[in-house]
Computed example of a mutant assay.
Amino acid sequence: AVLESCHPIAAPAREALATHIDAQRAAHGPGVWTAPEARLRRSHQEAVRALARLGDARALPSLLAALDGDVDAWRAIQVAGHLPQAADQLVPRLCDHLRRIDLSQQWTEMSANAILAALAALGDPAAVPALVDTLGTAVRHEHHGVTQAALKALAAFGPAATGALDTIRSLTTATDAHVRPAAVAALWAVGGDLAEVMPLLLGLLDDRITFLISDAADLLGEMGPPASVALPRLRRLLTHDYEWVRVPCAAALWEIGGQAEAPAVLDTLLQAWAKNPATANHVVACLDRMGPLAAPALPLLREQLALPRRGGRFQSIDHDEELQRVSRALIARLDPPGQSAANPRTA
């Protein structure tokens, strides 16, 4: 269980996990995932989940057994997305489970959303028809949480999901604040019509709900220079009183405006990071894209890496590992070994 929860740093245990799983199968048969003895069953399931999160296909037989037998299938669904190399076997089974969920019941949201996330991660277009059906059903039952998740999943497939465009388009004016930005993002990913999407994004930037602004800024940043009409609004939002608005808007400014926006972007990012360490992953990701223009951030990058524990988003292991990896790579690019000695001002 600990190895599973620590999966970003669990790679050294890969062979031990695989050996443990093989030994259990040899001793108790291929159905050990559903073993009647609780401790044995849990031991096997945790080992399989930990191995699956490492992307190791040796976890697959037990995951397939769980999905086929529908015993603790939810535990297999949660890790299925880590095995894209087995999408041809996992996707049909996941789609079957998705179709059997009764979306007229609100309590089914967690189950449906876990499958939708797994299908998006696996990336097999064979899942699109089931996703389209799920979106339609969720809309009919006003199941907003599943509607949002289905929109995000369809966005991952881009133009392959054109069959859902009419439904996606109708949801861009939804009353639910979480559904609306997800629909706009899906409309761009699937339809790719800048003229259609831009007025919707500018409207989100003008909203008073902060996560709508940040969602819009994230998407504008993905669009890059073609979204230049949003630059004036993004510049104004750098003075917003919430750092989770300022950071995505600053990142979008860089992606759209480039070098001309660098001074304001860098100042905004570093101030937000100092005020709220939870923004670190977003800030460092943007600094990495800025390259040499991020050089003034070197002292703060080194200071963060020297801490025994960083802030980072949700203080999770995976976010911290990513934060360290990007920060070290950025420092190496900005200040290669030997440069500090040659130029004391960079030390």
Rank of each mutant, 00 (worst) to 15 (best):
E261H: 08
S104C: 05
A189W: 04
W188F: 12
A295Q: 15
L165R: 08
R235L: 10
P8S: 04
V32N: 07
R42E: 15
A306Q: 11
Q148R: 12
H28L: 13
F157M: 02
A149T: 03
W74G: 14
H143G: 04
L301R: 01
L98S: 13
V79Y: 03
R289E: 13
P277E: 10
P92V: 10
T173N: 07
R313F: 13
V326D: 07
L269T: 15
D68E: 14
V284S: 07
R333L: 08
I77Q: 05
A251P: 05
T34D: 15
L60Y: 01
Q304E: 15
A174Y: 08
A73E: 15
K152T: 03
Q339Y: 10
E4R: 13
H319T: 14
L305E: 07
A118S: 10
H319D: 14
L135V: 01
A294M: 06
I21G: 00
D335H: 08
L17P: 00
Q259I: 11
A66I: 06
P296N: 09
I9N: 10
A18H: 05
L201Y: 01
E15L: 01
L116E: 12
S111P: 00
A149I: 04
H44C: 04
D218E: 15
P308T: 10
G31A: 14
W74H: 15
A217V: 11
T147C: 05
D166T: 14
A117D: 15
A50W: 00
A161N: 01
T175I: 09
I115L: 10
L67I: 11
L253I: 13
L298R: 08
D72N: 12
L307G: 01
L40G: 10
N113H: 01
A127P: 05
R39M: 10
Q304H: 09
Q106W: 13
G31T: 09
A262G: 08
A189N: 09
C249Y: 02
H240P: 05
R208I: 12
P92A: 10
L64W: 03
Q89C: 07
L151D: 08
W188Q: 13
A278V: 11
V139F: 00
L219C: 06
